[in-house]
Design a protein around this nucleic acid. Sequence first.
RNA 1: GGCGCGGUACCCAAGGGGCUAAGGGAGAGGUCUGCAAAACCUUUAUUCGGCGGUUCGAGUCCGCCCCGCGCCUCCA
Length: 564
Amino acid sequence: MPLRLYNTLTQAAEPFEPLVAGQVRMYVCGVTVYDLCHIGHARMALAFEVVRRYLAYSGYRVTLVRNFTDLDDKIIKRAAEQGRSWSAVAEEFTAAFRQDLEALGLAPADVEPKATEHIPEMVALIRRLVERGLAYAVDGDVYYAVRRFPSYGKLSHRSPDELLAGARIEVDERKRDPLDFALWKASKPGEPAWDSPWGRGRPGWHIECSAMAGKYLGESFDIHAGGEDLIFPHHENEIAQSEGATGRPFARYWLHNGFVTVNGEKMSKSLGNFVTIRQALQRSSAEAVKLLLLSTNYRSPLDYTEAAVAEKARALAGVQEFMRRVEILAAETGSPATAAADESGGAGQAGSRRPASTARAGDRDGCGVVSGGLTASIPRAREPAPVGEDAFRDAMDDDFNTARASGVLFDLVREGNRLLQEARQPGGAARCLPRLQETASALRRLGQVLALDLRSGLTLVEKLNGVSMTRPVEAVQAELARLVGDRPADPAAFQSRLSAVLAELLAQREAARRDRNWAAADAIRQSLAAHTIRLDDSRTATHAVSEFAAERGLPPVAVTLLKS
RNA sequence: GGCGCGGUACCCAAGGGGCUAAGGGAGAGGUCUGCAAAACCUUUAUUCGGCGGUUCGAGUCCGCCCCGCGCCUCCA
């Protein structure tokens, strides 16, 4: 089944056909950098990152451009309030957005152009619109003559007359039509200003995306995306500008994500329900936040609550537990740790790959178009599809149905857990391990397509066959408390010391259990549980698995004691 | 007023004319276990906001109604 995606332009799901075979060019409207970004921005970034990743998985070479609006009334206003320069404000929140994306484990776009670095391109585009009779200058301002562009309204599916009917537009005598919008604005004193044929001024909001999309992706490209609030006027105006200037179709598919509400209400500062990405990540893991954002169709509204994220965290814990068990089983049976080695890395590493900038804009192909760099690190679809993967593709081919796709992942986990039970039978481990590792590998791979890091979180599985006990259990417990008391300066040293301590405790407990001294054994279990280290007895071994909360900054540790 | 979206179990949510209505969370019972945890099995919607209609057949299409929401103004 071919990929179908819902196109706002046609209001229908359409088969996806790129303009150039094998290559996808997409532009996402990014953020205006006047404040910290909230989970609505995170949803936007994630939704289209998943689009990018699924297209790459499907074999396309994808180029993603996502701009920063670093020139805007809100930035100027914020700067004035804080007594800072507007550029300082823009730089601060540009950096903050990049940090937030990295914390979420989302990769930078291939090109992340800034409005302020493309003023000449915007001026050239406005000049072209004036020459073609689609724009007119008045007192140092330039306006787009909406009525001169016949298909104005085709994206938002409203005619200019309809738009006018219910509109609350302030009357500006200098505009020929109330719907005309500014391409260039004469700057007031103290505002940023650039020279132009119409005097010193600054660009209107919409022109930057037309200019930058055209520069990096060409006059016509495949996908243009953004939040649903951008449909009108921003994207409508982009179409008028770009198609008016070039006479050629602008973007082919228009994708728009739905809003995030908080406790059922749209986020707003006045309501005090504005949740920044930082706040969300303080309370929950990035993977749980992302799983919640992916649990409904990207076009539908999504309610963000602490309880909902917590539910996703519990769901995710089951997946991670399965991954751990496969790794532990591999360690028990002495199999090579293929599970950890079969991929270069999870989604979580993508974010730290490298910063994007317009200066280092990647390769250019023959037609002056920047081509994608991330694409190479995303796993490709395999033919024929491994078990379970065809269902994943069916879901994703259906307008990126991430809710159904994540259901496929949970189905894989359940099947894997059944196999794990079978593996407990005598001789079962060796028989089941290859299939288990395949399942774990599929989960990691498909998780990456959804920008989810489904690795087990285990960095160390220690395997013991016997440990000498040289000190009393109280001394070992005291060292354990010391170790986990603080955020460690050296995580690797912490892990090796902690695993040694755990090994001692496991050995002491195993000795107690052999003596049927259940009280002593349970006391050790409880002392570990107090530090969120869980013990897990199986027929052949005992496992200690750390479950440190993310905010404590302790690296995960797992120790396996084999019964001899 | 105009344009558009949604109402599916206790909660979230997929499914958009015909195989037993995905999946997650929560609850209940069971298996396994010295204890425990996890996991697995069973179970929780003869029914998809209400009423009509089309059809051999309707959560699924049409009409009306009720409820909730978004956009039309800066907003992801």
